[in-house]
């Protein structure tokens, strides 16, 4: 059944209260691209009866930077807006690339990054990219606001740590270090409009000596949720950004992820792709880091 009511509260707390009234069958509506298509296809169970739209809640803006340099993306900020933002493209290339590759122009015009993250789909491109920038979700309920780091946001396939009545107001990303770079790659069949078989994102920061100071590797479609592969990340620390190290990290990532076989790909294919493609993604991220360093100095 389709939803039977759509409410448009004008404040976060009102929205939170409306959601709490019937927690089982209420849902936040952002761009609606995920929620509406999945409800239509009978994939949401129980189907939401009440949709609480975020449309009428006043916002501070769509994309803005705080004094500490951190990037803020509002709950209603669309993928198209993020994709068009030169600063995001410059500083968070993996996020930019993810946002330009999701769905079609029609989807990106409506879909939000926060919705992508909250959908908690294992194949959410934006969530995977967001994971490799140390992002934080700013959560509100009817009386308070608090932070949840994205690494502890996902709890299972299409489930998050949000409790009924809790809403993500914005995503926040710390400014990347000056010698860092990131890269993104999705692997699927079609070039466009394709729910990816494997999603890979990485960000790499180098120290003054050109060694890897920090590395964040996030994967999608290879586990019940978008994941970080910390073992593989740790393996890179202190190393020179060289192919052998990247290949080793990819081997670890491939062994530690936990893919399933479905209509899009088999588990074995997914592991193989992680092994084959992650080195390339890390390489590109490292090259961008080196380029950033050259530019900075």
């Amino acid at each position: 059944m389709a939803p039977v009511e759509l409410l448009t509260p004008t404040s976060w707390s009102e929205a939170a209260l409306l959601l709490q009234e019937s927690p089982e069958t209420s849902a936040v509506l952002a761009g609606g691209t995920d929620l509406m298509s999945r409800t239509f296809m009978g994939k949401v169970s129980p189907a939401p009866r009440r949709l609480v739209s975020l449309r009428a809640i006043p916002s501070m803006g769509t994309i803005w930077r705080a004094d500490d340099g951190s990037l803020h993306l509002h709950a209603r900020t669309t993928l198209a807006q993020i994709a068009a933002d030169p600063a995001v493209r410059e500083t968070y290339p993996a996020l930019h690339e993810a946002c330009t590759r999701i769905g079609s122009p029609q989807i990106r015009a409506r879909a939000t990054l926060v919705g992508n993250v909250c959908s908690a789909s294992p194949a959410a491109d934006g969530a995977v990219a967001a994971l490799c920038f140390g992002g934080t979700a700013e959560v509100v309920d009817d009386h308070s606001a608090f932070d949840v780091p994205l690494v502890s946001f996902f709890t299972g396939p299409r489930t998050t740590c949000l409790k009924p009545g809790q809403i993500v107001r914005a995503l926040r990303f710390p400014p990347p270090s000056p010698r860092s770079g990131s890269a993104f790659r999705r692997v699927g069949t079609r070039r466009a409009m394709d729910c990816a078989a494997v999603i890979l994102a990485a960000s790499v920061a180098l120290d003054a000596a050109g060694r890897i100071e920090s590395a964040e590797i996030a994967l999608g479609s290879v586990a019940p949720t978008p994941i970080r592969v910390t073992e593989a990340e740790t393996r890179l620390l202190g190393q020179a950004p060289l192919p052998a190290g990247f290949a080793e990290a990819a081997r670890i990532a491939s062994a530690t992820c936990d893919p399933i076989s479905d209509i899009r790909a088999s588990a074995e294919y997914r592991r193989q792709v992680v092994r084959g493609v992650l080195p390339l993604v890390l390489q590109q991220a490292a090259e961008r880091a080196m380029a950033a360093e050259r530019q900075g100095s």
Partner: peptide
């Protein structure tokens, strides 16, 4: 009806969107 084919495309405040994915009330 699932956002995949684009046959339902309209311009919504100037942008191309899939009208099958927009709840009517959101078009107020």
């Amino acid at each position: 009806g699932e956002g995949e084919c684009g046959a339902c495309t309209v311009l919504f405040n100037g942008e191309a969107v899939c009208s099958c994915l927009i709840p009517a009330a959101e078009a107020e």
